[in-house]
Amino acid sequence: MTEQVARVEEKQFVVFQLSKETYGVDIAKVWEIITMQPITKVPHTAEFIEGILNLRGRVIPVIDLRKRFGLPQDEFTRSTRIVVIEISGNTLGMIVDGVSEVLRISSDIVEAPPPAISNVDADYLEGVAKLEDRLIILLNLDKVLNKQEKIELENVG
């Protein structure tokens, strides 16, 4: 029972748009959100690696989340944002279509991810939060850039 109680916990999520879907990432993993910046391309890297940018003196890699998830390409707009996250000691930026809000989501409205949803491999998902009028896909960032893939990335170079 105590376990059940513990599970009904509220967590804050940064909610952003990508293609037609709404996604959320744990706010604890988000470093900051910046507007689109000039990004320097790095040759011989995986396609979804957009390049590197200068975050106040640090050089951080930036990935295009649309490309990462195999979603249709689109031009960057005024609302395009880079969500800077930190996972397993790496800081990196993710290009998303726009950041809308920070939401408190209590864990009792989060359901396990369905096998396949909107082209995004189920592995990347932590769950789906059902709000009154919409669904928010919660991302498991560690999986989005899991080790396996990281190794592949390094081999590309």
Binding site: V59, P61, G157
Partner: peptide, 14 residues
Amino acid sequence: IKTLGKFIGDVQGV
């Protein structure tokens, strides 16, 4: 000189 970081790793020619 800054490294490209672990995430990108070694890139030939860079």
